[in-house]
Simulated assay, not measured.
Amino acid sequence: MAPADEARTTGQPGLRERKKRETRLALSQAAIRLCVLHGWDNVTVDQIAAEADVSVRTFRNYFTGKAEAIAASHLERMLQVGDDLLARPVGEPLWDALRHAVLGRFAPADTSGTINSAPQNQRWRDGVRLMLAEPALAGEIVKANAAAQQELAKAIARRTGTDADRDVYPKLVAAVVAAGSAVAVEHSLRADQPEPLGAVLAQVFEQLAAGLPMP
């Protein structure tokens, strides 16, 4: 079976698409890393391209500026969540499969709060908060989130045998997953006492699976 045929059959991205996604993600992560460590106004496109070991022309082939590059990480992460969801065991309940997929991408090594509770990472957490408050980034995050929900809805539709265009269900679940994940990240970043993102995400999905019962 040819790679393109296999991609259509399995729902997984083909080699060319994976390479493009890898480049986009490398540029996005470079932009985030530099802006968090050095501040929004102190980072240029040239520096981002150099950090990702590509040319400025390559950067321009993917993004119009650093705000779009940073927001792209959210879309890529949700694409990965969708890929992982489709790879979960067929008989696994949907919300269990979603919890595993989201935790695997949002907090892959977050077993003891290393990112969000270690004192040496306080600078990183402060830098992330400042970056996310940057007005130039707000519009790009909104666009990336809309695209992310649309792509996740497609994966949920495949998983549940529904139609991502005609049925409300996959769109609703995708929106709930996106909102729940955003709440977990925000809570983890801004809590007075740092809380591990993995633990917060697990709590969010436990409550969602239970139908958000009254505390």
Rank of each mutant, 00 (worst) to 15 (best):
T23Y: 10
T23F: 05
R24F: 03
L25K: 09
L25P: 05
A26T: 06
S28H: 06
R33V: 06
R33G: 10
C35K: 12
W40Q: 01
W40L: 01
D41F: 09
N42C: 07
V43Y: 13
V43A: 09
T44K: 02
Q47D: 14
Q47P: 08
I48A: 13
A49K: 01
A50P: 04
A50G: 11
E51P: 05
V56F: 03
V56I: 13
R57T: 13
F59A: 09
F63M: 10
F63G: 11
G65P: 03
G65E: 04
E68Y: 08
E68H: 04
A69F: 06
A69P: 03
A72V: 01
S73C: 06
S73M: 06
H74G: 13
L75Q: 13
Q80E: 15
Q80Y: 07
V81M: 15
G82H: 01
G82D: 10
G82Y: 08
G82N: 05
G82M: 06
D83F: 00
L86T: 11
A87G: 04
R88V: 03
P89G: 12
P89Q: 14
E92T: 15
L94W: 03
W95H: 14
A97Q: 01
A97P: 01
L98M: 04
A101S: 13
L103W: 12
L103H: 12
G104L: 02
F106I: 01
F106Y: 09
P108C: 04
A109H: 14
T111R: 15
T111E: 15
G113E: 00
T114Q: 13
T114P: 03
T114E: 15
I115G: 12
N116D: 11
A118G: 03
P119A: 06
Q120S: 13
Q120H: 15
N121M: 11
W124V: 04
D126R: 13
D126C: 03
R129H: 08
R129I: 14
L130D: 15
M131V: 12
A133N: 09
P135W: 00
L137S: 05
G139D: 08
E140S: 14
V142T: 14
V142C: 11
V142Q: 12
N145K: 12
N145A: 14
A146H: 08
A146K: 07
Q149T: 10
Q150M: 09
E151P: 05
L152I: 05
A155H: 05
A155G: 02
I156K: 06
A157W: 02
A157R: 04
D163R: 05
D163H: 10
D163M: 09
